[in-house]
Design a protein around this nucleic acid. Structure first.
Length: 738
DNA sequence: AGCACGCCGACT
DNA sequence: GTCGGCGTGCTC
């Protein structure tokens, strides 16, 4: 069947961003048929009816395609390839491992503008530097112009050229002052293209454990190694990162620092900027496409030494990469959940291996996968068991609420604790992982329940907005007051949401300020930031919120934390639910007692003897993790096995199981003995936004067997015609089976 | 993914 | 008699 190659046709083999598992050959442009064009160069090509931006994979001498059918490249966009050989190698690995179309993999590695073919030129961000005169001039001589004085002091503190973005982050009104200082010949426009080392503020003192961690990584720079830095909240992980980064920068190398979206706050950014001045570039979803492209290019051109960014920053080309740091490595936001479903943590490790550099994973509550690797000695395990300074660890306590009266989920014992804490002028943080007023609207007479038409879910009551809202598809309707089923019935709100708890708190503590932090209250731009400032300035007594409170935000005066309903996490069908709950409890606990004041953490539960809770509270996260790993081993679940999940969805409920049954049969044809096929089964909450979701799980304790099956399976699925009727996707190493 | 081509129902 | 529904097929 193999076609004879056509002779002697110089062709460019190009990856096009379409969901197809193949490459496309083109003739070089007539004007410039460069046979030495380098892979990683962007090209514009005619594709079907339109033009598309593609990525050169190889120049070949013999195409499998009839030369008469070959179209010609319209233009070569880049003079030099934007990706290095190492970058290309990583993207090829990603495409192969995640079984994702290569053109789409390339596409996700580039910022939006470059995907669309925009020129890869850096709109030269201006840098300013002190002149010799500026270095020696005492800022006091400018005391009559305080703006200029503070700008001069800023430069003298950093003793480094400062970029526009650094100055913007510091103070939005710097331009006129800088202009005046240039006129006075104290500052000058800095055009040096050297990699800024950005040595700003001094290192902070470290305890011996921190120092040991710093030394362990610093002595292994220049070789591949994975470090798991397990440090309780407040143990000073960030300081460890920064001192290692300083060493890497001193060698003239670059550093990638990846954090979950929610952790990349202006405070963290400012902390890095103070320490590393001009050297740092930031990239996250709140920036504009242009800002992200600038950040990408600054790193790619070696003009910046540190990239502080979220998941997608992982693919930023770095000509001199020396270290990758991934903070809060257990965080599920490192897994992309649509399109190319990659794990930034796992790909970071592959990238580090390919570069021959270390990668540092940090967490207070490492994932079971990483702990397993640390226990097996594949990762070097660094521990910071002590809180920095003299901060005391919080005390965790289970509060049995069986048969106890509750006021909107608050027990009398908890209310008494809240009162005592408020009386001492300390803050209280309450955690409830459900937004809205109540999750169910039920008819008291006939039992009718408000249900989403498009999903297998109840509508959530949002009393303040007078809405019923589906938290799965976003559909909204006006809040009903009369039962539509039996007409006369009284409608009752069942269950608890943050809004409802806020109401009762306002009634019980009318003199206190209550701040509610959830997706609804923080939608407005900058709202979260304002609330956080309000809290930290002490203008809040009780803070009530969802998941979003668990990470990153430090509340120094909070001494009492309560999780109102810990039980909802105890009985889930998801085998990772216990791990997630334990991580959540520990992370939430980290919000308490950060200063000298000891913190208390109360978990309201109807299952005070549940082994997950008792183990976690009496013996800590590590002991919990050891037991949880033993259970995973017993059940043959990850990390003791490898999984790949096919998902399929369609408006017609009959189609997805039929499609997945075909996938299952195709998989059976390539069956390795270790491979298990589970399903197809309806996904949890099968109907979502009007689509019926099903899934098929492939599992094996040998990664190669799973990969070999997928290798054979995907081309077969692509050939299979009816598969085009369903939306399907493949998730290698899924983290939730949802 | 787009975007054509291609045959069967309600309309200027 | 046409406009347009989305089924099917292709993209070098």
């Amino acid at each position: 069947m193999a076609k004879k190659p056509f002779q002697q046709t110089l062709a460019y083999r190009i990856a096009i961003p379409v969901p197809l598992y193949r490459l496309f050959d083109y003739l070089p442009p007539e004007s410039n048929p460069n046979p030495n064009l380098k892979p990683g160069t962007r090209l514009e090509v005619p594709f079907g009816k339109n033009n598309k931006i593609g990525y050169l994979i190889a120049v070949v001498g013999d195409s499998d395609i009839d030369p008469n059918k070959l179209k010609r490249v319209c233009r070569i966009i880049d003079e030099h390839p934007l990706l290095s050989a190492q970058d290309l190698k990583l993207l090829h690995w990603v495409a192969r491992y995640y079984h994702h179309p290569i053109g789409e993999v390339f596409s996700t590695a580039f910022p939006v503008g470059l995907r669309q073919g925009k020129a890869a030129t850096l709109q030269g961000e201006k840098c300013y530097a002190l002149t010799a005169l500026g270095k020696t001039t005492a800022s006091e001589t400018l005391k009559r112009s305080p703006k200029q004085k503070s700008v001069l002091e800023k430069f003298q503190e950093h003793s480094q050229p400062l970029s526009e973005s650094t100055l913007n982050a510091w103070n939005s009104h710097w331009r006129t002052a800088v202009k005046s200082l240039i006129d006075k010949q104290l500052l000058t426009l800095d055009s040096s293209n050297t990699l800024p080392h950005g040595l700003g503020a001094d290192d902070l003192p470290c305890n011996p454990k921190q120092q040991a961690a710093i030394n362990a990584v610093s002595t292994q720079l220049g070789q591949f190694a994975v470090f798991l830095l397990e440090g309780v909240t407040g143990s000073g992980k960030t300081e460890v990162y920064m001192q290692i980064i300083r060493t890497v920068l001193a060698q003239g190398l670059q550093v990638l620092v990846l954090v979950p979206e929610i952790t990349l706050t202006p405070q963290l950014e400012e902390r890095f900027r103070q320490r590393f001045a001009a050297a740092i570039t930031v990239s996250h979803s709140k920036l504009t496409d242009n800002q992200r492209q600038t950040a990408w290019l600054q790193m790619q051109q070696g003009r910046s030494a540190i990239m502080l960014g979220t998941r997608s920053a992982l693919f930023t080309p770095c000509p001199n990469l020396g270290l990758i740091i991934l903070d809060e490595e257990h965080d599920s936001s490192f897994k992309q959940q649509e399109g190319l479903r990659f794990s930034a943590r796992d790909v970071a490790i592959v990238r580090a291996k390919q570069h021959g550099i270390p990668v540092l994973l940090g967490s207070a509550t490492p994932s079971l996968e990483s702990l397993y690797n640390a226990q097996r000695g594949r990762y070097q395990w660094l521990q910071l068991p002590e809180r920095a300074g003299n901060a005391l660890a919080p005390v965790l306590q289970l509060l049995d609420i069986r048969n106890k009266p509750l006021q909107e989920g608050l027990s009398d014992a908890l209310l008494a604790d809240i009162e005592q804490t408020l009386a001492k002028n300390e803050q209280v943080l309450l955690f409830l992982n459900r937004r809205g007023f109540a999750p169910t609207l039920i008819c008291h007479s006939c039992g009718w329940v408000a249900h989403c038409q498009r999903c297998d879910a109840n509508l959530v009551i949002h009393a303040f907005e007078q809405l019923l809202r589906c938290h799965h598809c976003g559909k909204e309707q006006r809040l009903l007051h009369h039962c539509p089923a039996c007409q006369g019935g009284t409608l009752t709100a069942l269950g608890l949401g943050t809004e409802r708890v806020e109401n009762v708190l306002n009634a019980l503590f009318p003199q206190q300020t209550i701040v509610r932090l959830d997706r609804d209250s923080t939608q407005r731009k900058g709202a979260l930031q304002n609330y956080l400032e309000q809290i930290n300035q002490g203008h809040a007594d009780i803070i009530l919120g969802t998941q979003m409170l668990a990470k990153g935000h430090h509340f120094a005066n909070v001494t009492l934390v309560a999780i109102l309903d810990v039980d909802s996490g105890l009985f889930s069908i998801d085998f990772r639910a216990p791990e997630k709950l334990a991580q959540l409890i520990v992370q939430v606990s980290g919000r308490a007692g950060r200063a000298e004041k000891p913190g208390r953490v109360i978990l309201q539960t109807r299952h005070p003897e549940h082994p997950l809770l008792t183990t976690l509270i009496q013996d800590g996260y590590q002991r919990f993790a050891t037991l949880a790993l033993a259970e995973r081993k017993q059940a043959g679940l990850p990390p003791y096995s490898y999984q790949a999940l096919f998902r399929a969805a369609a408006v017609d409920a009959r189609l997805p199981p039929v499609f997945l049954e075909t996938v299952s049969q195709l998989a059976r044809q390539h069956l390795k003995s270790t491979l298990q096929i589970l399903g197809p089964v309806p996904a949890p909450m099968s109907k979502r936004a009007g689509l019926y979701h099903y899934q098929l799980l492939l599992q094996s304790h040998k990664r190669q067997d799973l990969q070999a099956t997928l290798d054979a399976l995907l081309p077969a699925i692509e050939q299979h015609k009816p598969s085009q009727k369903v939306r399907w996707s493949l998730d290698v190493d899924p983290i939730d089976l949802y």
